Simulated scan of single mutants.
Amino acid sequence: MAQKVEKLKGIIFDKDGTLFDYAQVWETILKEGIALTFNSMGKQHHQTAKQAMLSLMGIDEKGQCIPRGLVFTHRRVQILRRFLLYCIRYRVNAIKAIKGYNRSVKHSEVLLNEKLKQMDFSVQQRLFRRLKEEGYHIGVITSDNASSTNLFLSLMGLEKMVDFIASRDSNYRRKPHSEAFNAFCTQAGINPSQVAMVGDTFTDMLFAKRAQSGYRIAVLTGSNDRRRLERLSDVVYEDISFLDTDKRLFPAQ
């Protein structure tokens, strides 16, 4: 006898690369940040090193996401090792680069505000409204900071439909540890098996697996790493718009 599929009552989204195409939003921001960083080091003419830095972060010359990019990696040791190797290869002072990057981050919210106001998020808004109409509890668990996360959700028109937010500033251990997932379940009063997880990285899917999520959905608008995502996900979609026709999320359609 086939096992009965449990009804889903909650859904958790990653933010960057999941709720929107990562490169579409962040390419301009990262390029500006890298330019500011190199200017602060007096290396504004080092175009090869700038492009290599963008590729290291996760966006190639064509504006496409690179699966091995640091922004899609959650292993701190690996991030530090690859960053230091980059600094050695391109003769970049690591301390100055980090300080310059931190200064550029403070400026990024101004650029983000301008960028997001120009974008159409009607697909995401319709999806979230439909999920709420179906009675779903909605959570967003991200590695971004609280200020940036709130800015995104506000400008995307989603903030009033999100019931739970866990960011880098929250007192939860980072993905793939399941602590934030469990907190969402506790707040919503539901079991992990009743929660769908939507993410764009292998870490998101590992996070969902460790939390014993009932349904793991991967999208290709972030890390674009289909091969690894297929290993842990139940389904892989090109982007978030495909959720609208997903029969596990909306079985009555």
Results as ranks from 00 to 15, higher is better:
Ile59Cys: 14
Glu6Phe: 00
Ser223Ala: 15
Asn182Ile: 02
His177Leu: 04
Gln3Ser: 12
Asn182Tyr: 07
Ser108Val: 01
Lys4Gly: 06
Ser167Gln: 04
Glu179Arg: 05
Phe128Lys: 11
Asp14Ala: 10
Ile11Asp: 10
Asn145Asp: 15
Leu54Pro: 10
Gly100Val: 02
Ile240His: 11
Val105Glu: 14
Ser148Phe: 00
Arg68Leu: 05
Ala49Arg: 10
Asn102Met: 13
Arg226Ala: 06
Ser154Ala: 12
Pro67Ile: 01
Ser213His: 07
Gln51Glu: 14
Asp200Val: 02
Leu56Ser: 09
Phe181Glu: 11
Ala211Lys: 13
Leu54Phe: 04
Leu229Trp: 06
Arg76Phe: 00
Met156Thr: 02
Arg168Trp: 04
Tyr86Gln: 06
Tyr136Asp: 05
Arg81Met: 09
Ala35Asp: 15
Ile11Arg: 15
Ile12Thr: 06
Thr221Trp: 04
Leu111Gly: 06
Ala97Trp: 03
Leu19Glu: 08
Arg103Pro: 01
Arg91His: 13
Met197Val: 03
Tyr172Leu: 06
Ala211Ser: 15
Arg89Gln: 13
Tyr22Trp: 05
Phe242Thr: 05
Gln47His: 06
Lys99Met: 05
Val71Ile: 10
Tyr22Asn: 15
Lys117Ala: 09
Arg226Lys: 15
Tyr90Pro: 03
Arg76Glu: 09
Val140Thr: 07
Gly189Ile: 01
Ser213Cys: 12
Ser167Arg: 05
Tyr215Ser: 10
Phe121Gly: 12
Val219Trp: 04
Asp234Ser: 10
Asp144His: 07
Arg129Phe: 00
Gly189Met: 03
